[in-house]
Nucleic acid binder design. Structure first.
Lengths: 350, 350
DNA sequence: GCCCGTCATCATAGCGCTACGATTTCGATG
DNA sequence: CATCGAAATCGTAGCGCTATGATGACGGGC
């Protein structure tokens, strides 16, 4: 009996867990001569701690090199200061710009970004959302409005703020920031038509997967009614200059007297420009070219590229703003969508 | 017995905390008819749970829509399944490719990426590392070998595995994957020299901040000794086609009889190509151009761009491999550095 | 001098999960 | 059929922090 008890006690005592931290908040508290609660309070709301105590705590933190443990904090507070972001591709300059802007805005607020890319697959997106939710994130940012049923359910059930970006038009899960790609496509068509182009083509890359590129193609085709003869030509590979060269070759072959081109991406337009140089097709005289994206090189091109600017940076800023406002307690139905529009940047190519 | 329980319940009663979770592991365990430990074990090492129990648990998870809480898991396990990655810029295609590859590799292992960009500032890098460490990450991946003293100290003290990528040459904190930029610069010079170019220039963007671009410039200049007259021209803005156009204009003005150019980035080379088209300077006949990066458009250019491929994807793969091996228990001194080298891709421009 | 409101600080009880060691189960063996 | 070892399962004690409600300290008004 007594033996057993002693043995049990001994067993319990020998139980050791590896700590993850060398310096904890408690140690800071001890050194500062306050309680851990006060240290925690100081870290979260410095204003509600007296100046004297605050100074003491700050000194102790500095002296000990204390690094707060957000994992423990997140558990205790029932929610972490991380935001999950899922984009189709990190390598796509559009999303890179947006993610970059969001990260900047968040860094100031101490929010971390959990990033994933889905390769335009709803299945992968779902897996990424699932992982992100495992982190009890403060919010989740997705690209576009098309998601698997399971993704939507998961998100709704979790109650986490959700922002869908880069697309507007269909119903959003929670909040949305973006613009209508249909309209952007229509803008391209109208611009070409205004330049007297009547036999035009839309060159798309990966439109089976990229619903937004597909929407631009649709908008382009729809706006052509009675204005011009429009065809849509697609390439299954990701947008690239190479795809552009291939697509323009096919367009030239397919459309007799082709005189205008809209591309789903400036990279594709760049390929068109290169291929036209090779074939000595004058841009814009014989062929007008409109891009999409207003990527860095668009202005330096020969000729400078007329393109549609989606303003990925503004999208990023607005996404960050919505998330931040929600975190600061804005009502769930405060502001649901932001239309960032699109801008036709007219240069020389069309 | 009953009284005690009641008393305890009474004391606790008024205290309420908001739960972060609707479905917990305990509920899964109850439904599956096993203990929480077994569920946890199943989730981490399915092989060490009997097939029958495993099936039951899987069914319960599915039925309840259970989403594991990695925040709690991370706290209990003294370390999370997140990896902090800091790159100078997400918008830079080099790093985008590497991060993209790393993310793919990690997704399969259930590792999350915490991403930040430092804008080439050691101060910002330090802040990002500090935040990342707050997440008790499984590893931290940094770009380059130059970091603030505080960053190095922080990292060393934390004991977290560190991989520095995209650069080799100086001492690494822990592990490193990359290549010598000095050598890459030398390769560019040697290639130009082999083509008989004797009056050459290196066009760099942002070399005060981008130490790697600076190293390429140095390697280029050093290799020129006795081979050619080399100058280095720099532009303070980030690499872009526009910068390329500006730089080549300055180079042409500065160097009489200029016949060879190496660029710190394919984007800069693209600007050079455009500007030369405008000025009717024949590439490569009058001016040979070597880029860096082998970005998507390099092969479609007019003329196709001779460039140096740094293999950002291979770097990403190797980074992921080193991290994964370390997590699986490889010794801290198992393998420290991986040289991914660089590859001259000869096309038509030089 | 007493009461009360305000502000700063504190003690405590978990957040949901995992590691550890203990315990049980079960087939194989002598 | 008892014995043993391996495999499967379980009970428990935290991981480090924050939210909550309680306590103390202080000052103004009566």
């Amino acid at each position: 009996m007594t033996l057993e008890k002693a043995a049990a006690a001994g067993a319990t005592r020998s139980r050791k867990r590896r700590k993850m931290q060398q310096v904890t908040m408690t140690e800071v508290a001890v050194l500062a001569g306050v309680s851990p609660s006060t240290v925690s309070l100081f870290l979260r709301k410095p204003a509600s701690v007296s100046a004297a105590a605050g100074q003491e705590i700050a000194r102790a933190i500095d002296r000990l090199g204390y690094v707060p443990n957000l994992v423990a904090g997140g558990l205790a507070a029932a929610g972490s200061r991380a935001v999950g972001i899922v984009v189709p591709s990190i390598q796509n300059a559009f999303f890179a710009e947006t993610v970059s802007t969001i990260q900047e805005q968040f860094a100031e607020e101490g929010l971390q970004i959990l990033l994933g890319h889905s390769e335009y697959s709803e299945r992968q997106e779902e897996a990424l959302v699932r992982t992100a939710l495992s982190w009890a994130p403060a919010a989740i940012v997705l690209t576009g409005l098309s998601h698997s049923r399971a993704t939507r359910d998961l998100l709704k059930k979790s109650g986490v703020p959700v922002v869908e970006m880069w697309e507007l038009g269909a119903a959003a899960i929670d909040m949305a920031v973006g613009f209508s790609h249909r309209e952007a496509g229509a803008t391209a068509l109208r611009h070409l038509a205004s330049k007297g182009r009547r036999r035009v083509a839309f060159l798309g890359a990966r439109t089976q997967e990229d619903r937004r590129a597909a929407a631009r193609a649709e908008g382009f085709a729809a706006a052509a009614q009675g204005q011009a003869t429009a065809v849509v030509i697609n390439h299954p590979a990701p947008a690239s200059a190479e795809a552009g060269a291939l697509l323009i070759a096919r367009a030239l072959q397919q459309v007799e007297g082709l005189d205008g081109i809209a591309c789903s991406n400036d990279m594709v337009a760049l390929g068109v420009v290169f291929e036209c140089q090779r074939r000595a097709i004058a841009i814009p005289d014989r062929l007008a070219v409109v891009g999409f994206g207003d990527l860095g090189f668009a202005a330096s091109c020969n000729p400078p590229l007329t393109t549609i600017r989606p303003s990925g940076d503004i999208i990023g800023r607005e996404v960050a703003r919505l998330v931040l406002e929600r975190l600061r307690g804005a009502a769930r139905d405060r502001e649901k969508t932001v239309d960032t529009g699109h801008l036709l940047v007219e240069r020389r190519s069309a």
